[in-house]
């Protein structure tokens, strides 16, 4: 089969790089991104991930771009944030037409702790099982995921921290 051929070639390549992979799982595992390990605890309102995923502070400026970016967080598709919506006059492409699917994020840092917000971003389904909101830092448990997204997360660990550093300012 064509697919297993590719997997074998890829596998030996990865093997050379020093990462040994079980051949039986190669088809799936060759594309799997390694995720940062995190611990879930109970927050005051919902579950929380209290420790930073990377140990490196987030950059709120990058966070704002990631929230707007349709290929990244695309948070504006569903959430309205008044302070950012005000910038639509100067940059409508980025800030106009914020969605109304989720609650406005104004004041969200007053409603949740940092750890709870991190949990929401990493895997919203753990907190709201029926939610439409994607899990941004999860790479398993999907159905018919398109090839190029297989084994990948929507956001990287540092990107989660970047967005979080901005969310924290929405008091």
């Amino acid at each position: 089969m064509k697919l297993s051929g590719i997997a074998t070639v890829f596998c030996s390549f990865v093997g050379l790089a020093g990462l040994m992979i079980q051949p039986a799982l190669a088809g799936d595992k060759d594309k799997m991104m390694m995720l940062v390990k995190y611990e879930i605890s109970d927050g005051p309102a919902i579950k929380a991930i209290n420790k930073s995923l990377t140990g490196k502070p987030g950059d709120p400026k990058k966070g704002e771009d990631l929230m707007a970016n349709r290929k990244k967080g695309n948070c504006f598709a569903c959430h309205m944030i008044s302070s950012l919506a005000a910038k639509a006059k100067d940059n409508p492409k980025k800030y106009a037409d914020m969605g109304e699917i989720g609650p406005p994020l104004d004041g969200v840092a007053g409603r949740y702790t940092e750890g709870e917000l991190r949990m929401m971003l990493v895997d919203s389904h753990k907190v709201f099982p029926d939610t439409i909101m994607p899990s941004f830092y999860r790479n398993t448990g999907f159905t018919r995921i398109k090839g190029k997204f297989k084994g990948k997360t929507v956001l990287k660990a540092q990107e989660v921290e970047d967005i979080l550093s901005l969310l924290k300012t929405f008091k």
């Binding site: 994607p134 899990s135 999907f142 159905t143 995921i145 398109k146 997204f149 929507v154």
Partner: peptide, 18 residues
């Protein structure tokens, strides 16, 4: 009603709920 894709949504999420 089945969630699918990396964004993990079903038809119902968009067209029934919202």
């Amino acid at each position: 009603y089945k969630r699918r894709g990396q964004l993990d949504m079903s038809c119902a999420h968009c067209h029934e709920k919202y």
